[in-house]
Amino acid sequence: MKSLTLRNLHKTYFDPAVGTRVTAIQDVSLEIGAGEFVAVVGPSGCGKSTILNMVAGFLPATRGDIIVGDRSVKGPGRDRGVVFQNFALLPWKTVIDNVGFGLKMRGIPKPERDRIAMEFLELAGLSQAAERYPNELSGGMQQRAGVVRALANEPDVLLMDEPFASVDAQTRMTLQEELMRIWGERRHTVLFITHDVGEAVFLADRVVVLSKGHVLREIPITIPRPRRWDALTEDGEFKRLSAEVLQMVRAA
């Protein structure tokens, strides 16, 4: 695991509708320690997905640095594993081939990458679905595959872009708990984007509230781990923190 540092990140772009350059991200700096789980919340349009896309290397930053460990990065790379909102599994590959894709890109031979992919599928309870195609799976199962696909490639940092926003509420809670279990075992450095305040407080060590392209506040989440929904929904600390973050997001 490595740390992730965003230093004075700016993003401006030309908006043809307005006819001028608009600022999407304004001087965002963020330190995420190795093995730390940081959630970024904010209302839609606050720029949280723009930040993730810049960190992932899908979108060039106008100014500023993105540093993984001690290395400044540009463009996409396998040091930063990405979990997408709409899963982004390759539809023409089976689940096991999707999970083994990063290993294939590293030149690992088929038997070896199948073995590793299978381990990760078991971790996500997906071993039965290994030979199926993504469109044959439920949204929840697809996203389990999406998560372990990123993990199987052993990234230094895990970037998650509203990964549970497109599954139903029950599945979402299960996926959040599973993510906590896996993260508890492996302690990845995680940058997690969400608009769901409860989700952010439940998952993260620290919640960053973003407003109009800049960091409004950072709130440490001191709730002890392991966290489970049935214990936390009535927890005073969880309620207090959620209310505090929610207030800020609504004011943002």
Partner: peptide, 24 residues
Amino acid sequence: RLRHAAASLGAGRLAMVTEVLLPG
């Protein structure tokens, strides 16, 4: 997003063509 996914998993130019663009 499929191209992004492949790129972030380490696909280079050639792999992008053979693994994503042609099948797609």
